[in-house]
């Protein structure tokens, strides 16, 4: 049903005898943008170091945009985005305190219930997010959408998924002091999040057809809702752990990023 509404909208706007010029009569832009997200502490989705010490890198968000000029200086923008990045495994020094006689899980253990990761550190957990964004591009004084300088405000709904290697965890048996290999959580969790973004950018039209878009985006993704690990429910806690990690990563990466996009004037 939603598709019907969308098609009806597209049909209506394409045949309406509008007083909005667009560019050479074309008001709808379909395009692809790549957001370069600077990750100062890494990791990228595939480029982790063989430890949890990662070098700075860029992550990418692939973005498919549909934009439509509502009036001379405003465009409504709908976009679908896909982000893929990594969350490094922590090399938690579980057990160090026990052997020293000062047993303290909370300060030493990143994972719930005294677990530590023993898998391949260089292959981090995968965080992927499919985002849906709705925004308004407001072109500067004198410009006519879709050409020229713009400010864009958008709200982004993020549907995040974290996949991690849940089979390579071991926890220390408090009785024997020995380490027992076992599963930690389900290996995959999904989270929802929301973000607000502000972009300053510029669009150029090449050859009256191709739309070139570039700019800088500032996005705020709430990361404050950090859950404190309960320490009793292993599965619940690891889910909360990755929720926190996922939000922190999104917060950091979306905070400042730049994009380059290419598209075409559809109608």
């Amino acid at each position: 049903m939603r598709l019907v509404y969308l098609l009806f909208f597209l049909l209506a706007v394409s045949v309406s005898n509008a007083q909005i010029a667009g560019y050479m009569g074309k008001r709808c832009v379909i395009g692809y943008s790549n957001y370069f997200m600077f990750a100062p502490k890494g990791p990228g989705p595939m480029s982790a170091e063989p430890s949890n010490e990662f070098s700075a890198t860029f992550n990418n968000a692939h973005c498919l945009n549909i934009e439509y000029a509502l009036n001379q200086r405003k465009m409504i923008c709908f976009s679908g985005q896909y982000i893929r990045t990594g969350i490094a495994y922590d090399d938690g020094k579980v057990g160090d305190g026990f052997f020293a006689g000062t047993f303290n899980y909370e300060t030493e253990t990143p994972y719930p219930n005294n677990n530590r990761y023993v898998g391949i550190y260089s292959k981090p957990a995968l965080l992927s997010s499919i985002n849906v964004a709705l925004g308004i591009k407001s072109f500067g004084n004198g410009f006519i959408a879709p050409a020229g300088r713009y400010n864009k405000f958008e709200v982004i709904l993020m549907f995040e998924t974290v996949k991690y290697d849940n089979k390579n965890f071991e926890h220390q048996d408090p009785n024997s002091g020995g380490f027992v290999t076992g599963n930690l959580g389900t290996g995959e969790y999904a989270y929802n999040n929301v973000s607000v973004a502000y972009t300053v950018g510029k669009q150029r039209i090449l050859g009256d057809k191709i739309v070139l878009d570039y700019g800088l985006r500032f996005a705020y993704t709430p990361a404050a809702n950090i859950v404190t690990l309960a320490g009793f429910d292993t599965v619940k806690d690891i889910e909360d752990y990755y929720r926190r990690e996922s939000r922190m990563r999104m917060f950091r990466q979306q905070l400042i990023n730049f994009h380059v996009g290419i598209g075409f004037l559809a109608f």
Partner: peptide, 17 residues
Amino acid sequence: YTKSKDNTDLITSFVYN
């Protein structure tokens, strides 16, 4: 009045409008 270079695409959009 625009704070911008006199790019062809910009001028085209003005003229067309």
